[in-house]
Structures are given as structure tokens and as C-alpha cells.
Simulated assay, not measured.
Amino acid sequence: MKNISDFHIAGISYRNTDAETRGRFAINEQQYRNLLSTAADFGIEEFFVVSTCNRTEIYGFAPSAAHLAGFLCSQTEGDAGSFHQLSYRKNGRSALEHLFHVSAGLDSQILGDYEIISQIKLAVKTAKENRCTGLFTEKLLDHTLQSSRNIRSRTQLSSGSVSVSFAAAQYIRQHFTETADKKILLLGTGKIGRNTCKNIVSTLGTKDITLINRTNAKAEALARELGIRFQPYECLETEAARADVILVATNAPQPTLLQKHLEHSAASLVIDLSIPNNVEMSIAGYKGICLVNVDELSKVADATLQKRKLEIPKAQQLIQEQINEFKNWYVMRQHVPVIRAVKSTLENIQQKHMQQDSVPLQSDDRIQKVLNNMATQMREKNEGGCNFIWAINDFMASS
């Protein structure tokens, strides 16, 4: 079992960087796979990376958080020096607490946004498939997921409809006096795109929505599900020309909506839901267009957020309970060799006792009872070899 003090995190988030900066350190799927395949060259065996529109963080075992950060930046557009200046770094219990807070939505740009937990789950799953996780990481994920489930079921931290996708629909509503007659183009039908589209359909009262995706089948499937239009990627410029609102959720490494696409467009609002930015920056102000990114969307006010803030103490208490359970497991895993040795010793003592008294060897729960008592002592007091002696004395006294 690895030493918990060697578990580190290095990351940046919306708290200390803007969307453009986060974009330089965002990790796409291919970059993540490159990290997984080169980890051994950096002396890293167990790690995972969480990269979303709000944050890029690397968690794992390494000599230091700076070592992890340098490894991460080997695949980013941004350099390690800049990342070091901008990033926060934690280790041991502090790193554990950070992960639990992030997974609960307590550190999300919109408080209580629980989409992050599925992103963490996918990050660890991908790392596991590439043999870059171990017992510690997988058990930590189990407790993180349980903590998130407890918070969702026992608090109102994620109640109501508040997320980046919801905020996008709200922003459109605030931007226009009437929304029912607006023509909306959504580029990108991944998870964020799907959620945004569903929010628009349910809240804006319009179905004049057109979907475009590089993989036409995905756009077609969502369009059929929601009863809206879809067009092939080659029709982007044509569809942009008829749209009043354009939303971009492509999460590509480079901009996918360019100024040239809008030469004949009358759109007055463009919303970029991607990190790094997937809308060419020159579009801001072009022909009077209002360009909005995820940082602006996070400022959309909603009464729900005020209610969620009241749930923070409850969520923190549930997190603490789950962290304590994980630490108990961690402590006991460290003592497994000692417990096995004690069990073997007690079995030998019992067997010799039976042979000397010519009594047939029989099933006896005394050993298990002693081991259970010993485990309890170990959790409460870490006294090393004293536990071994205590267990043998306890067994002899009960014989």
C-alpha cells in the first residue's frame, strides 16, 4: 500500500484562471491517452486527469505535485512554468478533501453542478483501462461516488435546474424579449450539447432548433428524439446564415465556428460552451454579435443557488464521514500483513494445544473474535507490534 502523503494533486480552475488560460491547459481524449502511454517514462504508475470547462487537475502518486504538473504539461499547449505559477497543489488528506469537494459540486463554477462526478468516473475508468490505477485509486473512487450519492439523496445541494447548460438557456431568455420565434443553431451534440438542447426545448418554447455535429448520426439521433432539425456539418455556413442564436459545444482543440462562417449571418448572440474556446475571438463585436463564454454564463443568477448555499454544511459533514471511512480502510490495509501473521500464529497455537490435549481440531470462532478486537484496537491506536502481543495474550486468556 502506497503512502497517502505521496498522493498529490496539481490543478487550475475557474477560481484562479479565465476560460482562455484554462483552454491552454485543457486535456482532450488523445492527449490523455498520450499521458497514459508515457506515464512510465516519468516514473508515474498511478494517476488520473480531470479536464472540464471549469478545471484541469491531475491526481496521483509522485515525488511531488510539481512532478505531476510537469508530466501533465508535457501534453498541453501551455508550458509547465506558467502552470506552476497558476496552479494550486495539495497532498495527503488535503488532496483527498479537495477531490471529495470537487465531486460533490462544492467547487463547481455553478454550485451543486453534479455533472463533474461522471467526468471523474470516466477519467478513472480510462486510466484503469490503461493500467494506470491501483487499489488505492479505485477504492478512493468508490468512496467518492458514495459521497456524491449521499449528498444528492440527503441534501438539496443539487436541487433545481442550475448548470452551465441551464444557464445558457437562461441567458438566451434574458437577451431576447421573445424567444418563441428565434432560430437556434447548436453545433456539437456531446454531453454538454445534449443537455443544453434539452434545456432550450423545455424552457424557451421554441423548436426551431437545428443540430450540427461532425458525426451526423449523433445529431440525427438527438434531433429525432426531440423532434427538431439536423443538418450535415457541411451546411454549417448555410445554417449560421439563418440563425438568431448560435451555441457551440464542440470541445475541439481549435475553434470550429469562425468569423467567415458568419459573413451572411444575422445572429446577434453566440454562446461558446467549450474549453478551450471553440469560437474564434474575432467574432466578439463582429456585426454587433454578443459573444458569451462559460465564465459569463456562471454569473447567471437564480434563486436556486441561494437555497443550495444553505446545504453546504450538510454536504461537508457527509464528505467528512466518507473520508473517515476511506481512511479507516487505508489504515487497515496497511495492517493486513500484521493481521495475517497474527492469524497464522493463533492457528498454530490452537493446533498445538489441541494435539497436546489429544482433542480433535475443531471449528472455533475465538480466533476471528480476537482478530476483530485487534482490528478495532488498530483503528483507534496505532501501536505497531504491541497489537501483536495484545492479540496473543487475548487469545490465551480466552483458552
Rank of each mutant, 00 (worst) to 15 (best):
I116N: 09
L371M: 15
D41P: 03
L262N: 04
Q355H: 07
R154W: 04
E115V: 14
N373P: 00
Q320S: 14
C53G: 00
R152V: 04
T38G: 07
Q109T: 11
F176V: 03
L269Q: 14
A127H: 08
H98L: 06
L361D: 07
L211I: 09
F83Q: 01
Y59H: 14
K198Q: 11
W390N: 10
T137W: 03
S159A: 12
N54W: 11
V359Y: 11
A26K: 06
Y171N: 08
R379T: 02
V50K: 01
C235L: 01
L257F: 09
K343M: 03
A10C: 13
E280D: 15
M396T: 13
L222I: 08
Y286Q: 04
V50S: 06
A62G: 07
D107Q: 13
V279Q: 06
I228Y: 06
R149F: 07
S159C: 02
L346A: 03
L187K: 02
L68H: 13
T17P: 10
A267E: 07
A180C: 09
I392E: 01
S358Q: 15
I9S: 10
L141P: 10
D79M: 02
A123D: 04
A180D: 11
L36E: 14
K218R: 15
S274P: 07
Q254C: 02
P313D: 12
E347P: 05
L247Q: 06
K381Y: 14
S202Y: 00
K198I: 03
K260G: 01
F71D: 03
K2A: 01
V270P: 06
R224D: 10
L140E: 13
T155E: 10
E311P: 07
S13M: 03
E383S: 10
Q356P: 02
K307S: 11
S153Q: 11
G188V: 00
A66V: 14
N16K: 08
F48G: 08
K309Q: 15
I323E: 11
C73L: 06
K182M: 05
A26G: 04
I110W: 01
S153L: 11
T210I: 02
S265A: 12
K287C: 04
L211Q: 07
I192R: 01
E129T: 05
A123Y: 09
Q334M: 10
T155V: 02
T38W: 00
H264G: 02
F326I: 09
I172Q: 05
C197W: 07
F136K: 05
N382G: 00
A10L: 04
Q146L: 14
T21W: 03
Y88W: 08
I389S: 10
S82C: 06
N3W: 01
S74Y: 05
Y330H: 15
T133G: 12
N91Q: 13
A69F: 00
K90G: 00
I200E: 04
A66C: 01
K191V: 13
H335E: 13
I200T: 05
A397P: 05
F166M: 05
A19Y: 00
F61W: 10
A219I: 02
M354P: 00
E239W: 01
